Simulated assay, not measured.
Amino acid sequence: MEVENLWDTAVSKMCSVLEDQFSRMRTANHLLLIKDYVSLLGVTLRRYGYSVDALLDVLNKHRDKYHELLLSDCRIQIAEALGADKFEQMWMNKEYEYSMNVLSFQIQTSDIIPAFPYISRFSTTVPDYCRIVRSFIEDSVSFMSHGGQLDFYDVVKKYLDRLLTEVLDDALLKLISTSISGVNQAMVVAANTAVLERACDFFFRHAAKLSGLPLRMVERSRQTFPLPKARDAAEEMLSSLLKKKILPGQVLKRVLQDVLTHISETIVNFLVGESVKKFSLNAVMGINVDIKLLESFAENQASLVSAEEANQLKQALVEARQLKSGDYFRETKGSF
């Protein structure tokens, strides 16, 4: 009994010291560091049969403060990334750059590794945003995973939602409303938001994986795109800018190429998707007609751009054409 009383006194004192230290801290890293020490102490003491629930309760009590500080850090990092954005498409010269900036966040539109140098549709800030959000997820999971806790995905997801909707979406919206002055810039920002839509799927899968939650649970509860304000503002601004002027040939070509590339990617993603098990002959013929119409449209733009540039527009559809014309359907979707 005397030992138990002594231990209760010691735990009470440690909790008091922790409360005092946490109340003074103003950076998320400091809270995370102390959490690691407390977690290690708790694991060690439990091996000897001592109760450490009171210490862990102190950590749980300060999870909101930790995440608020973490959100504040991310807000600063995102603002810095936005401030450095030159609204230029990102160049990648090596495969490792593509892997680090695209494959790492599962924002590729095809499993085929592109030829290098590769020019992406988005600017350098997209992988910057992705790294910030991924780091936030990992830090959140690290703080929550103490004392043998397993069921904390909902907490991580709650703060991830806030990071995306309250921090990133608002920052992008402010950028669009204050810093975009031309069609080229608007196109890049619109492309950025489209790519971030794919990245958001990765974020929630990553959070689930680190939290020990089966990915099928995340797929079942798939939510709406958490950056709607930025997406809608980017599309509206781009549409408004296009309506206000007759586009120069190079800009028109770029707009058309982006549109045709997007259509081609959509067709490819649909054809290889798990939802499609088998194609009928009529379905294949219908897809062929659609692609021919788009190719004809591209060829007919020679009156607005050069013949060579019109051919380049047609090349935007080459992946959909090759996939439709190849042996893919016979090998993977069955005969028709």
Score class of each variant (00 low, 15 high):
M1G: 11
E2L: 08
E4D: 11
D8Q: 13
A10V: 08
V11H: 03
K13W: 11
C15I: 01
Q21N: 11
F22A: 06
R26W: 00
L32G: 13
L33H: 12
L33Q: 09
I34K: 03
L40S: 14
L41G: 05
L41S: 10
V43A: 06
L45N: 06
Y50W: 02
S51R: 10
D53A: 11
D57P: 00
N60Q: 05
K61N: 06
D64A: 09
Y66R: 01
L70V: 03
L71N: 08
R75F: 05
I76Q: 04
Q77V: 02
A79D: 05
K86E: 13
Q89G: 11
M92K: 13
K94I: 04
E95V: 12
E97N: 12
V102P: 01
L103Y: 13
S104W: 07
D111S: 07
I113R: 02
P114N: 09
A115Y: 08
Y118V: 10
Y118G: 07
S120I: 03
S123N: 07
P127M: 11
P127Y: 11
C130Q: 14
R131Q: 13
F136K: 06
V141C: 15
V141G: 10
S142Q: 09
F143I: 04
F143Y: 15
M144T: 00
D151V: 00
V156C: 14
V156T: 09
D161F: 04
L163A: 02
L164A: 05
D169P: 07
L172I: 08
I176T: 10
I180R: 06
I180Y: 09
I180P: 07
Q185I: 01
V188Y: 09
V189E: 15
N192Y: 03
T193P: 00
T193N: 05
T193V: 15
L196S: 09
E197T: 12
E197P: 03
D201S: 06
A207N: 08
A208E: 07
K209S: 15
R216A: 13
E219F: 02
R222G: 05
A230C: 07
A230V: 11
A233Y: 02
L238H: 04
S239Y: 08
S240V: 00
L241T: 07
L241I: 08
K245D: 11
L247G: 08
P248C: 10
K253H: 12
Q257F: 04
D258W: 01
L260H: 05
S264K: 02
S264L: 03
T266C: 05
N269V: 02
L271S: 09
L271N: 06
V276G: 07
M285D: 12
G286P: 00
D290K: 03
I291W: 00
L293M: 10
F297Y: 14
F297S: 06
Q301G: 02
V305H: 08
S306F: 06
A307M: 10
A310V: 10
N311H: 14
L317M: 11
V318C: 05
E319P: 02
R321N: 08
S325C: 03
R330A: 15
E331H: 04
E331L: 07
F336Q: 01
